[in-house]
């Protein structure tokens, strides 16, 4: 009897763990006649872009720095919004693109980027001063799990590391508290960042119903349902409420 219970337990456990694993797993398939999602992310009103106070290395970094948090185009389009189809389990292969995070003029460039699992982070210091690049998976407000924390004491130093952890990650430099950036590390290729006009397009999506996540540093997060039809473009505009 005990053996039977143990066996059943084993089977149950394997099923549960297999299910959990599958949700995290992305399967590459040939996408024929895929659809796309395109749209514009806007806001009904954004606050003024904050000015960051600089209090270290001021002779090189200057005394202040525009945050670049609220970059609003004509018509209210919001730049630097991460748009991601998170619940997609199969589709085309992710591009073989590495993600560069450059410490340049006491700020990270770019401010918001996408990293593809299995590819590389290329961390670079273009400044003649010390920076460290600390990438952390955001767990909760004020809490993160450090993914990498690497010293870049010299100019033109470059360190490459594999992208191993998926999710929204913060980038910080402990030597300069105003420096920050965000990376969305994705296991699939279906993620984009809005341009100056707030526009984005995600292509070659297998037909189906998906949840699309919008994330912005200042406006926060929104999840919207969308149906993608074969060979067609689904329009998905989103408006962040006034802040």
């Amino acid at each position: 009897m005990k053996k039977l219970v143990a066996l059943m337990c084993m089977v149950m456990f394997l099923c549960v763990s297999a299910a959990a694993f599958a949700a995290d797993k992305y399967e590459v398939v040939d996408v024929k006649d895929g659809g796309s999602i395109k749209g514009i992310v806007k806001t009904s009103g954004a606050p003024a872009d904050p000015v960051l106070d600089i209090n270290k290395d001021t002779e090189y970094c200057g005394k202040s720095h525009p945050a670049g948090m609220y970059v609003i185009g004509a018509g209210g389009g919001v730049k630097n919004v991460i748009v991601a189809v998170e619940d997609i389990t199969k589709g085309k292969a992710a591009p073989k693109t590495d993600t560069v995070i450059d410490n340049h003029k006491c700020a990270f460039e770019p401010l918001v980027s996408i990293a593809y699992m299995g590819q590389k982070y290329i961390m670079k210091n273009s400044d003649p001063i010390f920076h460290n690049t600390s990438i952390g998976l955001i767990l909760a407000p004020g809490k993160k799990r450090t993914v990498y924390n690497l010293a870049l004491p010299n100019k033109d130093q470059t360190i490459e590391k594999p992208v191993k952890v998926a999710g929204l990650e913060s980038v910080s430099c402990d030597a300069h508290s105003w420096m920050r950036a965000f990376v969305y590390a994705t296991p699939n290729p279906y993620a984009a960042i809005t341009d100056d006009k707030g526009a984005f397009e995600i292509k070659d999506i297998p037909a189906g119903k998906y949840k699309v996540k919008f994330w912005h540093e200042g406006f926060g997060e929104a999840v919207v349902d969308v149906e993608v039809k074969a060979g067609a473009a689904a329009t998905l505009d989103h408006t962040f409420a006034k802040k």
């Binding site: 460290n132 600390s134 799990r145 450090t146 990498y148 924390n149 690497l150 010293a151 870049l152 004491p153 010299n154 130093q157 360190i159 402990d174």
Partner: peptide, 15 residues
Amino acid sequence: VGLGGTPMTSYMDSL
């Protein structure tokens, strides 16, 4: 290797 989860950063790749 640094101290995990702190500002103490890893110098393995830079020194």
